[in-house]
Amino acid sequence: MQELYLMRHGETIFNKRQLVQGAVDSPLTKDGIAKAKRVGQFFQKQGVTFDHAYTSTQERASDTLEVVTKQPYTRLKGLKEWDFGLFEAQDERLLPKFNFKDPAEADFFVDYGGESAKQVMERVNQTISKIMAKPDHQRVLIVSHGAAILMFLAAWLPFEEIAKQITDMPNCCVLRFTYDNDRFTYQGLFDVDQSANN
C-alpha cells in the first residue's frame, strides 16, 4: 500500500495580511520558513523518507519543499492553488461564505475570471492520481495549497465528513493518505506545532 503526504505551503506575507492568495504569489515569512524547517526535522527524526517529491509551480510551495527536504522534486501546474479571479490579492473578508455542495455557489468565482470548485477538484485529483499511479512511488511528498488540498479531499470524502475530521488546515500541516487500487483513503492531519504542544 502506497502513502501520500500532502502538505500545505508555509505561511506567506499574504497569509499574514489576510489577503486572498490563489493564482497570485507572495514570499514565505520567517515564521513560514521556520515551521517548514520543523516539519523537515520531524520527518528526519521519525525516519520518514520519500521516494519522490512534487510541488505546485507557485514559489510559495516550491520554496516550502526546498526547506523541508533537499531531494530533487518535480513542479506541476496541476497542483496550483484555486484561481480566484478578480478576488486575487483582495481582503479575505470579501470572499463569500458559500456551500461548495451547491453547484451554483461553487461556480461563484467563474463570473470573476476564476475557477469553479469542480474545475479545481478535477485538476488536482487527476494530477495526484497520475503521480501515485507511477511505478516506484511508494511514499510521496506533495506540497500544494489550502483550497486545492480541500478540493482533493472533497473528491474522496463527503463535505460533512471533512467538516467533522478537519476543523483547521494551518500552514505547513500535512495530510496523510494511503493509496490502493486507484483509491485514496484519508488517514489524518498532522501539525508539527500541535504535536510539539502535546
Rank of each mutant, 00 (worst) to 15 (best):
L65K: 05
M169C: 12
G85L: 06
V68I: 15
T185S: 14
T185Y: 10
T12I: 07
S195R: 13
T127L: 01
D102F: 03
D111Q: 14
L94W: 07
R123Q: 06
M7W: 09
A36T: 03
S56Y: 01
A117Q: 08
Y73E: 06
M151D: 01
S26D: 08
H145F: 01
A104P: 00
L65Q: 07
E160W: 11
D182C: 08
A36H: 05
M132T: 08
M132A: 05
V68W: 01
V192S: 01
H137M: 09
P103Q: 08
F42P: 02
T12M: 09
L65P: 03
D168H: 14
A61G: 11
I131P: 03
K164R: 15
I142C: 09
K35H: 12
N197R: 15
L28W: 07
Q90N: 12
L150P: 00
A106N: 00
F177W: 02
T127H: 02
G10M: 07
V174N: 06
R38M: 15
L28Y: 04
K77D: 15
G32P: 03
A89M: 10
M151H: 09
L157I: 12
R17W: 07
V140H: 00
F190V: 04
F42N: 11
R123M: 03
N15R: 07
F87E: 03
G188W: 02
M132N: 04
T127C: 12
R139M: 10
L76G: 04
L175F: 11
A53I: 05
L141S: 01
A89R: 08
Q90K: 15
D111Y: 07
D51R: 07
N171M: 08
E59D: 13
K134V: 06
R75Q: 15
K101D: 15
E66Y: 08
L94D: 06
M1T: 14
S144E: 09
R183S: 14
M1R: 13
K16F: 12
L19Y: 06
V39N: 03
K70S: 14
G114P: 02
A36N: 07
V48I: 15
V67M: 00
I13W: 11
